[in-house]
Design a protein around this nucleic acid. Structure first.
Lengths: 230, 230
DNA sequence: CTAGTAATCCATGGTTTTGTGGAATACCAA
DNA sequence: TTGGTATTCCACAAAACCATGGATTACTAG
């Protein structure tokens, strides 16, 4: 085997990682897994895939070393193989956002930012991690986690209250009415907190959005809390 | 278009970046471009591809926003679209190295580390950036750039001497015989400096290798020098 | 041991990449 | 304009990938 073939073999090996990232569905799975481990069926449902299809994609990810598995009785839990995978995913998104012009329009369409009264509504301001930390310690805001319960349990911002978006309109009473709410969800591209802010605004509350989510929070090595299943 | 489709559209957009990274040949091209801009023909030669094939791959990279072009007369120069692309490439390699066991064996095969007397030889020690900087300012080493002239001209470590590997055995006289040499090339996976150290050892000199290369040097935001064409 | 559940394996058609020659384009130099 | 050169576009066959349904494996609960 000549030098050229050896080099190709090495780079083809690198390309396995790239290939694994080369499908929107797989990236959705990685996005979900960045929030915590999950079973195949749960992933399939969350991503809108058939179990067989989801399993096949997960095998691809596993073959590329991006995820690992843990068996618990009859079900298998998938998780990211390391923090570097979340970082890689985030960098891919950032590169796409920076260098592909179509991303911005599709992001706006997905997050509902083009429908003034549906999603974020009038006030679309966002606050940063630093602001959130400062105002949370000062006690002037309620930090609200609107992700599904399972993801909150896996890891959340310490002190955050969990009300999944689905339940939010029924549980508005749990929020102190005079305190500003800061909602967050999975990451910068996650739609849940946008919709939560919309719901809160329509109920007459002051609410803003953390300008990112759990993914970036963890990558910044900020502390997280976990909670055992209820 | 429902929420699910909008989400898919957005993630498919992200996946364009992943797809572009999903081919060994394209990664080789990115690796070369990380050293500086180049024309299509030059890239095709360096990567062992036909011009048509190289052009097609470059189009894919361009469509994914990873490279940009500059026309100069009849030829077109490609370059990485930004520092973040080099960073992404490096992270893909690092993830592959960490999580795929086959990478290590192929790396060793490519770099010739399995042939004791051919490549690195007996003394395979490497030094770090910090060591290099300290010993270079102390003046106890000669820093040697063994990449092709073109890449040296695009950017190199300040104060480094340029002797492309091809010419090294003919130009040994240019090196002070009593000074230790530290060779570097493109990056951690680049074979040139391994072979250079082998050549130097066989000529009876003390020589080691920087444990990384120009790619990592730039990503660390260390200063570089450039030289106009000779 | 049997029934039931979760996940993977396997086979299959439909779509997308890949590599490659040959034609077309864009530019330069007289 | 007329060559000449660098690059891209086009067409096509081989290979790889995708989604999906049915069979199979691995495990748990009686």
């Amino acid at each position: 085997m000549g030098d050229r073939e050896k080099k190709s073999a090495l780079f083809d090996e690198f390309a396995r990682v790239g290939k694994a990232l080369g499908s929107g569905k797989r990236l959705e799975l990685v996005d979900l897994l960045a929030q915590g481990e999950r079973t195949v069926e749960s992933l399939a449902n969350a991503a809108g895939l058939g179990v067989t299809t989801a399993s096949a994609h997960l095998q691809t990810l596993k073959h590329a070393g991006l995820v690992s598995t843990r068996r618990e009785g009859t079900r298998i839990h998938y998780r990211l193989a390391g923090d570097d995978i979340a970082r890689l995913f985030n960098l891919v998104r950032a590169v796409a956002q920076t260098h592909l012009s179509d991303v911005e329009s599709k992001r706006i369409a997905y997050l509902g930012l083009d429908e003034p009264d549906a999603g974020g509504g009038e006030a679309r301001e966002e606050i940063s991690r630093e602001d959130l930390l400062a105002r949370a310690t000062a006690g002037t805001i309620t930090v609200l986690d609107v992700r599904p319960r399972q993801e909150y349990q896996a890891a959340h911002i310490p002190g955050a209250l969990s009300i999944p978006l689905e339940e939010l309109s029924d549980r508005l009473g749990e929020l102190a009415p005079d305190r500003e709410v800061v909602a967050y969800c999975r990451g910068a591209y996650c739609v849940l907190s946008y919709e939560a802010v919309g719901v809160l605004h329509r109920s007459g509350r002051r609410a803003t959005r953390l300008n990112e989510g759990m993914l970036e929070w963890r990558l910044a090595n900020l502390p997280t809390a976990a909670e055992a299943a209820a």
